[in-house]
Computed example of a mutant assay.
Amino acid sequence: MARDNTESSKEVSEVEKVMMSRFANRFYLHREVDLEAITGILNAARYAATGGNVQPWRVYVLAGAAKTALADAIATAHETASGEHKSEYNYLPAPLPEPFASRRNEFASVFYGSLGIAQEDMAARAVQSARNCRFFDAPVGLIFTIDRRLEKGSWLDLGMFIQNIMLAAKARGLDTCTQEFLSRYHAVIRTQLPLAAEELVVCGMSMGFGDPEWARRRPQMPKAPLEEFASLHGF
């Protein structure tokens, strides 16, 4: 007997469960990730959609001493001369229009509030932000670049590649956190990694086994309901 389409449409697939369970994790266990798992994730992620099969991504994956060296260099730059470092692109406009500004403010309130950090406590917020420099103490750090000669369409492709990595990692029991913060330290990153001149640093990513204690008490970040962002026609 054929299954009722309405009934089946309400079921959540295993892929969708992975998508909805993923979140930006900033707290990790001191537990190594096998190289086989990392290469498996990257092998799956390379099947991301890409216009004209351009495949505009490059990723540098670091662990152990290599990750420590990069983290130390970035942390030193952040502590001593943060004002001298700036990303090569603008992630968000200033000022940020509505409703996006309100959503960003809500994120800050929910996230920092979960850590017991008051909205106005800029010093404590700065300490938490500085943890970006060390990939939030995750065992694996990734740096993503794109050829600066490409256009915005290729950035869409890179985003799908990064999303594939996050989902493949989650499916293997690993957590991730993308880090636009690290793009401002592209000059420092170049001293540690063999980037070509045309490579533009887009972001970093932390990857590892998330701290289960944090996973239990972390707040659920609010997401806009479907009717707020989708317009359906002809159904």
Rank of each mutant, 00 (worst) to 15 (best):
M1K: 13
A2H: 13
A2Y: 06
R3F: 04
R3Y: 04
T6C: 04
T6K: 07
E7K: 10
E7C: 02
E14H: 02
E14N: 09
E16K: 04
K17Y: 06
V18Q: 01
V18N: 05
M19E: 15
M19S: 12
F23E: 10
N25Q: 05
F27W: 11
Y28V: 10
H30G: 01
E32Y: 05
V33I: 09
D34T: 01
L35H: 04
E36Y: 02
E36N: 02
G40W: 00
L42V: 11
N43W: 09
A45Q: 02
A45E: 00
Y47C: 10
A48V: 01
T50S: 15
N53I: 10
V54W: 04
Q55W: 00
P56Q: 04
R58T: 07
L62P: 05
G64E: 09
G64H: 02
A65Y: 09
A65C: 03
A65D: 14
T68P: 02
T68W: 01
T68R: 06
A69F: 00
A75W: 01
T76P: 01
T76A: 15
A77P: 11
H78D: 07
E79Q: 15
E79P: 07
S82W: 04
E84L: 11
K86E: 14
E88G: 15
L92S: 07
A94Q: 15
A94N: 14
P95Y: 11
L96N: 09
L96I: 13
L96M: 13
P99E: 08
P99T: 04
P99S: 05
S102V: 02
S109K: 14
G113K: 03
L115N: 03
L115S: 07
I117G: 09
A118D: 11
Q119V: 12
E120M: 06
D121P: 14
M122P: 09
A123G: 12
A123V: 12
A124Q: 03
A124E: 06
R125E: 04
V127H: 13
S129D: 10
A130W: 01
A130C: 11
R131T: 08
N132A: 08
D137T: 06
P139R: 01
G141K: 01
D147E: 07
L150D: 05
G153V: 13
W155V: 14
L156R: 00
D157M: 07
L158I: 01
Q163S: 11
M166C: 15
M166P: 03
A168Q: 09
T176F: 05
T178Y: 05
Q179H: 04
E180Y: 15
E180C: 12
L182F: 06
S183G: 12
S183L: 09
R184L: 13
Y185T: 00
Y185F: 13
A187L: 09
T191H: 05
Q192N: 12
L195D: 05
E198K: 10
V202N: 04
D211V: 09
D211Y: 05
P212S: 09
W214G: 02
W214V: 08
R216N: 07
R217Y: 11
R218A: 15
P219E: 08
Q220S: 15
M221N: 13
M221D: 07
P222Q: 11
P225V: 06
F229Y: 14
S231Y: 13
H233P: 06
G234Y: 07
G234C: 11
G234E: 00
